[in-house]
Amino acid sequence: MSIEKKREGLCAGAAGGEGSRGLIVEKRELAENIYLMRIYAPRIAKAALPGQFVMVRASEWGERIPLTISDYDAAQGTVTLVTQVVGMSSRLICRKAAGEQLTDIAGPLGRPSEFVHRTPEELAGGRWLFVGGGLGTAPVYPQVKWLHAHGASVDVIIGAKSAPLLIFRKEMEGVCKALHIATDDGSAGQKGFVTDVMRRLVDDEQQDYTMVVAIGPMIMMKFVAQLAQAYHIPSVVSLNMLMVDGTGMCGACRVTVGGKTQFTCVDGPEFDGAAVDFDEAMRRQNMYNELNVEH
């Protein structure tokens, strides 16, 4: 059966329900080595909220990998995942073609973003600044989209090494008030880091943000959180720690937040940026890379 036919079937809600869970209904290359996949998983799509993640396995002997949800559509029964080829397991996932099925997908896991619990007045009264770095731009999108749909005012900064690596630019433009770009080489937007743009917005343009949310490389989140703290703006970061089960069972994802050990999978993945011990988190994140485990 062609992909198109499968998709039609899915849209008609007749794809064999949960039996087709994990089916890749769409795959696109967003940038070099960065792929978007829309996965059929109706229960997950229905339950998902901004900030949550899924656990994915691409083969029978594969690792369980946590991936933050980049979009979800309950009507179509799909969730969108954006993956970058960095190691063996992400390569396995990215190698899958549309029409193929992921071996496993489970979720949504983690606590939804804190703002989903806020009242309409609180949402209307807030001024959000979202900072997405590299692949982290993708999970920023459902949050901005949700806030936009709930009448909140959101500015977004996207950072990337260079213009060809920018993702979700168009999608983001549709849901935010102002979109700012920073590239390391100046090939798009402002030359420099996302923190440079953030300084410009707060210092020069006198933007009065009430909340900063950063998702991206750990080092970027660390500096954004530090800068937000200097401006006395509360911040939230989304941590992508190592996980085995993703449901609270293993504790591999533990991080120190405000001096207390927390499990990223059940207590997070979003935490107060000012309270996270980023240096410990970075060290723990690289635990197995450093070992150079051969498999």
Binding site: S59, W61, G62, E63, R64, M88, S89, L92, V244, D245, M249, C250, G251, A252, R254, V255, T256, T261, E280, R283, R284, M287, Y288, E290, L291, V293, H295
Partner: peptide, 29 residues
């Protein structure tokens, strides 16, 4: 306790048992 190399028995056993990390064929380290 959060030093690298400190794990819960749950994590260690889940890697070895559920994920079959003791077997070379497994991708889980």
């Amino acid at each position: 306790e959060n030093l690298n190399g400190v794990v819960s028995a749950n994590e260690f056993l889940t890697r070895s048992n559920l994920m079959r990390a003791y077997d070379k064929a497994s991708d889980t380290p």
